[in-house]
Structure formats: C-alpha cells, structure tokens
Design a binder for these strands. Sequence first.
DNA 1: AACAAGTTCAACCGCGTTGCG
DNA 2: GCGCAACGCGGTTGAACTTGT
Length: 297
Amino acid sequence: MASSCNMNFLDELRRGPWTLEEDNLLINYITCHGEGHWNALAKSSGLKRTGKSCRLRWLNYLKPDIKRGNLTPQEQILILELHSKWGNRWSKIARHLPGRTDNEIKNYWRTKVQKQACHLKIDSNSKRFVETLRRFWMPRLLEQVEQNSSSSSSSSSTLTMETDQYYLSTSPQTEQTPIMPSSSSSSPKLSQTENPNPSSSIYSSDYIPTVMPENSNLQISSNGDIAYYNPSLQYNDCYHVNISDLDMGFIHLDMPAVEAGDISAPVFQLAEADWMKDIDDVGSTSWNMDELWRFKK
DNA sequence: AACAAGTTCAACCGCGTTGCG
DNA sequence: GCGCAACGCGGTTGAACTTGT
C-alpha cells in the first residue's frame, strides 16, 4: 500500500522548468518551516518535485541572498585565482563569492574560460593555461576594475578575505588599509617585503591571493594599484603591484618548467601569438572580457 | 523575415559522503 | 560494522535565447 502511494508520488513528479506557482509554494513553505529535510519538504509542501529538485531550485535561484546578473571583474579575478588554487571545487569557490552559486560559477567557467582554453588549444587545467590567465586576463580584469572605480569617484573595490572567506564590498578608501606607495624605480613595480613565503614570489604560481594568509584583504584601488594586506600584521606584510605593469601583459612570469605531457612551449607561444594577433586585428588595446570572447569567434 | 548556428544557464543525473538506526 | 536514506557536489543536458547569414 505504502509502496503504491510512493509509486503514485513518483508517477506524478514534475520535471523541467519551475512555474511561478511552484516557486511561491516553495518559498512559502521554507519561510514557515525553514530549509533542509528536502524529501520531507517536497512531499508535505504539495510540490510534485523531488527533494533534490526543491533543494536545487532554492539554493540556485530562490534564496533571498542570491545575486543575479553578470559577474563583476573582481568576482572573475577571484574565480580565476581560486580555481587555480582548488580546481573544480565549485561549491568551495562559491563560498567565497557571497550571493553566487556553485552552478553559476561552474557555468561561467565552462562557457567563458574553458571555451577560451579550447580556442587556444591549451588544457584548461594545465599550468600553462593558469599562467595565460595571469598574463592576459588578470590585467584586463584589473583594468576594468580600475576603470569602474575611477568612474565611481573615491570609492575602491575591495576583496576581503576573513577567516578563509572572501567578501566583496565597495567602501570608502579611507576606511581601508592604506595601499603601499609604488616602488618607482624598479621594474616591475613590485614591493614585497618580508615575504612570508620566501620561496615564492608574486610572479610565480603563488600569485597574490594564493599566498594570501587568512585574514587578509585584496584591495584594488582607484589609482590602479592592487595590494593585499593582512590586518593582523603590519604594513610591511603588504604586497603591492602597479597595474600599469600588469596592463601590458608583458609582466615577467617564472613560467613553470614544462612537464611531461604538457603542451610544448613553441605550440603555446604560437597560440599566444595568434591570440594577440586577433586583438591587433580588432585594433583595440582596451578590450574587455566580452570583447575577448568575440575576438576568438 | 526566416532559418541556422552559437551561447547561456536552469535543471537533471550519478556518485561520493555523511549521519543514523 | 552494515545498510539505508538524505544530502551535497561536480558533470552533463537541453530548452530558451541571441546572434549571424
């Protein structure tokens, strides 16, 4: 008897896109009873959906703090960095981008980043691709951040990492940790004092956020500087890089040794050259991410 | 205007993990 | 320790939408 009821429930299960009525049912139910116990929720709410489906709809779409719309350059930088650190750990990455879901980040990676890797004929999981991201994408994203922040007067965009959690915020410059002045003479303009990890540098695969200790801020200021800061320590623990160096895409990188099975250096350089040629063909030196995708079509 | 090709993203699926009896 | 159910995660799919011809 119980099993036949169960069969009926399964037979009536709805699939596909959610209707407004279903959304309202789910929202109302969770408002009254809270999240969790998804299978029980699915049955007692009157929804003809699986618990799994209810959970997914709530977490990816209906939850009040879900942020919609395009990912900001800051968020993209963070995703690229965290992916280089953790790989396809989407939920872990999503936890550092408040309001963004693992699904959204995964989709971003697949539709934007991985597609680019495909165009360049580089494995998106390879170190080469990570370095390519840092050499070409990061500077452009930082450029966007710079443009955005300069157009929004005195505010600065800040990625704050506290207790292993990133927060995105816009706050007055004065409330943020001071950015260290650029080292004017040396090139690239990087100051790195008391590197907590002397074996790594900002140019290596331990690029800024990946060597950030917990409780630190990644700050992208309106003057185009990017710095990161550990509030529990002193200023001399800040890293600082001038965006004008990054912008050229020619910042020196200690490219990792070519590994067995990895793409060969000449092939990589060819792909890289083609990419830059595409950009030249368009005749633009200030493209954004969206433009980049179009170049490669 | 019509169709094809490409893109996006919500939703589904399968599998691994966790918690509980 | 075992079996089961629930949950969470990452990979994949496909409908809807956009862009190009």
